[in-house]
Write a protein that binds this DNA or RNA. Sequence first.
DNA 1: GAGATTATGTTAGCCTCTGACAATCGGCAA
DNA 2: TTGCCGATTGTCAGAGGCTAACATAATCTC
Lengths: 226, 226
Amino acid sequence: MAARTSPPVGTPEGLGRAPGLRERKKQQTRDALVQAAHLLFLSQGFARTTVDEIASAVDVSQRTFFRYFANKDEVALAVMAEAEDYFIECLRHRPAEETPLQALRASIVKAWRDLGNDRASGPGSISSALELLRIIEDTPALLAAHLRRVTEQERLVVEVLAEREGLDPAEDLRPVVLAAVFGSLVRSAHLSWTAEQEPAGPEGMVAVIERHFDQLGPALAGHWRP
Amino acid sequence: MAARTSPPVGTPEGLGRAPGLRERKKQQTRDALVQAAHLLFLSQGFARTTVDEIASAVDVSQRTFFRYFANKDEVALAVMAEAEDYFIECLRHRPAEETPLQALRASIVKAWRDLGNDRASGPGSISSALELLRIIEDTPALLAAHLRRVTEQERLVVEVLAEREGLDPAEDLRPVVLAAVFGSLVRSAHLSWTAEQEPAGPEGMVAVIERHFDQLGPALAGHWRP
DNA sequence: GAGATTATGTTAGCCTCTGACAATCGGCAA
DNA sequence: TTGCCGATTGTCAGAGGCTAACATAATCTC
């Protein structure tokens, strides 16, 4: 959550003064590590890539790698983490008239679309994120770490939702429940997208997500059989 | 998913002939490992317990430990895994008249209640499971592994649901969506139970779960503000 | 009881991750 | 510029998770 490649679209982060050489170098190293790691993961898989390889691809010591990332998982999840942060930002700016569920749906769709438009390629790009998502889904260790991250993000969603509606999340279970439902909906959309031959790219993902949302009502409806 | 302490309540598993000495010994070793691990985790925490400690507490080599459990996580999640299997069994036996959502709710409540009644204490007991749940929730590595297991269990739920209703899960998204919603509901119930001073024991857990289910409708309802 | 299976122990080693200390680099002021 | 201070990095050493390979010992089957 510390330093990021480039400020997510729409976030006012260009305020701080010029960062200074030291900061810039750190950012460079971090970016280089992420990119090198992704290339290696993509070509050889996550498990068969050692931290030493990543570090020496960027010409830093292994020790330095671990000063940037707490563990090997983190470097793989870095891009996704950024996307998730942007989603939260979107949610914060949804108009108050929207239903909580509507706001969530609109935010996630907007997040994927914006990231798709603004950063079509390059490191930290949307396509990297999507490629990574594939790797994550079929690397047990990564999937586990990712799921944990997601549930932490859910806690944030609860806060935003509660504040939006002026509720105390400790008293009212609705934000908690809705956040949980939303999270699982998105995840099962990811799963579909990864598994099936969905149209690739952010638009494909958006389509899958919309389809899942549309099934929420029917799924909860009484009986399924006609 | 291989060998289990004792057949979960209600499962017809006493069919296979007498297991033979070899099998029995394996079972003993496995149980002993689980129990030793739990005691150590409870007293010193998960991270500060080494596999060597667990192994030598049972007087086997480290290598043998890893032949029973793929990794340190697995021995911690063993009891929970058993409970989850039993839940699936319950779901399979729900009457067809019930709504899918009703069936899920009834199954999870029944699962906790039965396990609470039948195995009040001892290794693999319900209280062990609940104690473990606490440890899981605040040990990041374990939580991650647990979440991954849960999502795999969700896949099973999808199958059972689809079969129950005679649907093809590849075509119809409703089972997938409902399983996801259900999973997240249960998880956020676990979270509440762990975090707050809910009445301990299985009955407390059941109460929390029911409360969460009751909020599903309201959470999805249009606007929350009156 | 002999031979085939299977579980266990031993050893050696890779890899992830951390602590400790020394060397180096950037920021800043005299 | 120079020199100091704090931050970043490298090096070294080591604990701990996990696996391959081979040897040994136990159980099972006939």
